[in-house]
Design a protein around this nucleic acid. Structure first.
Lengths: 209, 209
DNA sequence: GAATTAATTGAACGTTCGTTTTATTCTCGT
DNA sequence: ACGAGAATAAAACGAACGTTCAATTAATTC
């Protein structure tokens, strides 16, 4: 046999990405074989190499697109206001929403960094750093304005990101809590953590329509 | 050749554990081969099977001992007092200290859960749950006593553990901050997060001499 | 409808994997 | 001095790994 009826490169590539994210999130990059991935897609292993030159390149592509998507989402959700509390609220809400909606690719991006080559790793870390820098700037502005109580901006930024990313460990989409409820709970923890009194108007400014 | 001069089962087994923790923490369980591990120890791959029946059994042993060590450390560090703030402080200090001192095995225990079989995974998760239960009890007591402000005890417990475990991501033993300084910074963030006013006496009750 | 391009198969490559087997050498109690 | 058993080496096992390649068919173009 050879080309199958109804085959379409675009659809196959999308199916590969989707299957790869879900399989790698569940079993880990090293534990997923190209044959296993191909079987999930419904093709032979050799067909994968039409779309991605190597297994690592596939992983790198998934991670890069995840990080670029996160930065793009934040660019769309960020507020023009100068109030650090409103900006922090927008950051937390965007982060929670994005990660809850992409649990699998978040898992991949957080857990499989060590499977990247040096150059690819550097690129992903650069994206991650520029995202964290956004939060550090908010915290620094808030600390200088006196609305936040922060010992160490860098350490607090890492702690907050660690905390709010942890939502993907336990959150399942079909549970008692909605994404909005979870986001609000994490937001109030974040606000207390930064020593911010949360004013009424911030509580109702949602980053997403 | 066969048995080598100066060979000693006890020392070999200890060397295997040590090398396995460090290699798996760095490269991941799936990426480390038995031959690579044996080379690090300085023996042939077959010699490993004298001490651990399978590769997964080695991983499971490392994880189980890590979790048992964590629970034992908490048993030794816990305070008899009824004050939830002092108990929470003891919990955070013990957690930070333990994890900073065992960065590698913590990494293994947190990252390699998916490489365990169902039965082994269940055992590790049972240990983890009983540890988390300790924190939940402290938070619940504090909330009932009115010294903590907590929306959701379970969610807050996960958030705190996620946050304070994150220390191993960035902390390196030879940096500007000592373990004690890091622990105090995380403790003050935890106290603010739980809405606790930290009284003077708690600030100086160290769980470890 | 022939020529061209896109998509996929099936078989094979050399390598490495976890593990087993067998033989050999060292250590230690007696 | 010696027998027993602990500790290891060396070689081999079949299976699985990522990847390549030639062949083949479906879709597209003219």
């Amino acid at each position: 046999m050879a080309r199958t009826t109804g085959s379409d490169g675009g659809r196959t590539e999308a199916a590969i990405r989707e299957a790869a994210i879900s399989l790698i999130a569940r079993y880990g990059y090293e534990a997923v074989s190209m044959r296993q991935l191909a079987a999930e897609v419904g093709v032979q292993a050799a067909a994968l190499y039409r779309y991605f030159p190597t297994k690592e390149d596939l992983l790198f592509t998934l991670m890069r697109e995840h990080m670029e998507g996160l930065l793009a989402a934040w660019d769309a959700a960020r507020l023009a206001t100068a109030d650090p509390r409103a900006r922090l609220a927008a950051f937390v809400r965007n982060h929670i929403r994005f990660h809850v909606e992409r649990r699998h690719s978040t898992h991949v991006s957080n857990m499989e960094l060590r499977s990247l080559s040096r150059d690819n790793l550097t690129q992903i870390l650069r994206l991650r750093t520029s995202y964290e820098k956004e939060l550090r700037q908010i915290l620094r502005d808030g600390a200088e304005a006196g609305v936040f109580v922060i010992d160490d901006v860098g350490l607090t930024a890492i702690a907050i990101i660690q905390m709010i990313t942890g939502v993907i460990v336990w959150f399942r989409p079909d549970e008692r809590l909605s994404v909005e409820e979870v986001a609000e709970t994490y937001l109030s923890m974040t606000m207390r953590l930064t020593g911010a009194e949360m004013p009424r108007e911030v509580q109702h400014v949602h980053a997403h329509a």
